[in-house]
Amino acid sequence: MKKFLRTNEFYVAVILILLCVFIGIKSPVFFSLQNVFDLLRSSITMGIFAMGTLIVIISGGFDVSFTAIAVSSMYITIKILFAINYEGSFLVALIISALIGLLMGLINASIIGFFRIPTLIATLGTQSLFHGFLLFFIGSKYINNVPDGMLRFSRSNLITTVTPTGAITGLQSGILILVAVVIVVYLLLRFTMIGRNIFAIGGSREAAERSGINVIRTQFFIYGFVGMLAGIGGIIHGAHYKQGNPFDLVGTELNTIAAVVLGGALVTGGRGTVLGTLLGVALVVVMNNSLILIGVPSEWQKVVLGIILIIGTGIPAYQNMQAAKRVKTNLAE
């Protein structure tokens, strides 16, 4: 219990609860079922992206190309489905988009794995490469509707309620996909060999290599998996907004990365939890959607996000530095 009080998850949870209570007191709309459903709906895509980002960060890497992958998979899938006039299940769209994402993720993986290029620079490069490829070779036109399957998916709800004003709202069924992804990532990190390998590489690549872990193969898994998640998140995003916008998402990767880092994942690798990441996502989503409810003007939101990001990364970094100093003085004595 005492140990739990010192974890990052605990801090984030406390901040999240305080923020929610504060917003709730100032504006009772916040706790209405409709608002809660809306918040959950807008956290689906970011939650899926965050699970991918978590894996990359645990492995000691950094991926900023996932938004470009997501928007490319989404746009290409919508184009394909329209071209073949497919109106069937959303599942097909999901699979196509996931495969396109996987392919792009594998491109990342081969650049990072074979050539050992620093992950941030490699993915900055591929972000520009993928997005440029999409806009120049595939298309840069805005598509203002989506295939039928996606439309039906975006309208499907798990639970529906009627608000006092008479409008029908519900919990969007995409939340099931998020839950599935979260469970898969949790099991993967907790109980599988590849999960152990990911932690090991993030802790120390050198040590992992020497203990016989195939680092390149693991990296192929990581970036392929992340690409696939990006494809899944992208197509859900497209369905939610009922549009194929090739300029969407790119540039918002920072929000996701901020959520994961706030959730306690260590950017130098080797540490990070699914629970913390979910809390981080919840915090960022609440801030992005609800600060306006308590009268924070929209233009101040970025400032608040920046401050929280700096404090959120600063506290663990400072603690680490102090701990390292203590070790050093102990050794000196």
Binding site: L254, A258, T268, G306, L309, I310, Y318
Partner: peptide
């Protein structure tokens, strides 16, 4: 002691 990349990502947002 924040890694440069994260510190400047945060300050960029700010």
């Amino acid at each position: 002691g924040i890694p440069a990349m994260l510190a400047t990502l945060g300050s960029m947002t700010l």
